[in-house]
């Protein structure tokens, strides 16, 4: 679809706003609807949109496979890491009260990092599945 001028321009205009909206959903999840899962999906959707319009190879250059696979595991590790930090600081696993001198601020910090972990993993998994499906299609066409 690279040859459709209108699609290309619209995609270029929209993708930054999609990513910005994902960040809004991520960081405003404490106050409004949304959170890590939704933000991760929106990030993945923006990149999938990019891949559909500009081609899978271009998208793979922008967001390479190793980055996606690292995200896949990194999110879970961030989440579990927050839990382990809680243990190290003298609380229970996934205890956020100990992350800051003020327990409420500690809760806030814990929730922030946990949501970040969820977002990273979800974005990675969605993108990876899309890459896998789309990549197979291209190979079958070659064959």
């Amino acid at each position: 679809m690279r040859n459709y001028l209108v699609l290309r321009v619209v995609a270029k205009i929209m993708i930054p706003f999609m990513l910005l909206y994902a960040l809004y959903v991520q960081f405003h999840g404490d106050y409004g609807p949304g959170g890590g899962f939704q933000a991760g999906v929106i990030i993945a959707a923006a990149i999938i949109f990019y891949a559909i319009v500009f081609g899978l190879a271009t998208a793979r250059r922008v967001v390479p496979d190793w980055l996606v696979e690292t995200c896949l595991a990194a999110g879970v590790l961030i989440y579990a890491g927050v839990g382990l930090v809680g243990i190290l600081l003298g609380g229970n696993f996934l205890d956020y009260f100990v992350l800051d001198r003020d327990p409420v601020a500690g809760q806030h910090r814990g929730i922030f990092w946990v949501e970040a972990g969820v977002c990273v993993t979800v974005a990675g998994v969605m993108l990876k599945i899309f890459y896998m499906f789309a990549g197979r299609r291209r190979e079958d066409d070659d064959a």
Binding site: G29, D30, Y31, G32, P33, G35, G36, L72, A73, G75, V76, Y79, A80, G83, L94, Y96, P103, V104, A105, Q107, H108, G110, I111, V114, E115, G117, V118, T121, V122, V125
Partner: peptide, 29 residues
């Protein structure tokens, strides 16, 4: 009061039910 997060859904998901969400993230992974 306990978490300082006005969106109760987020508070329950990430704090009170942190274990469940960790499990969900692991399922997605």
């Amino acid at each position: 009061r306990e978490t300082g997060v006005p969106n109760v859904v987020t508070a329950v998901l990430a704090s009170y039910r942190g274990y469940d969400t960790l499990g969900e993230t692991t399922v997605v992974f």
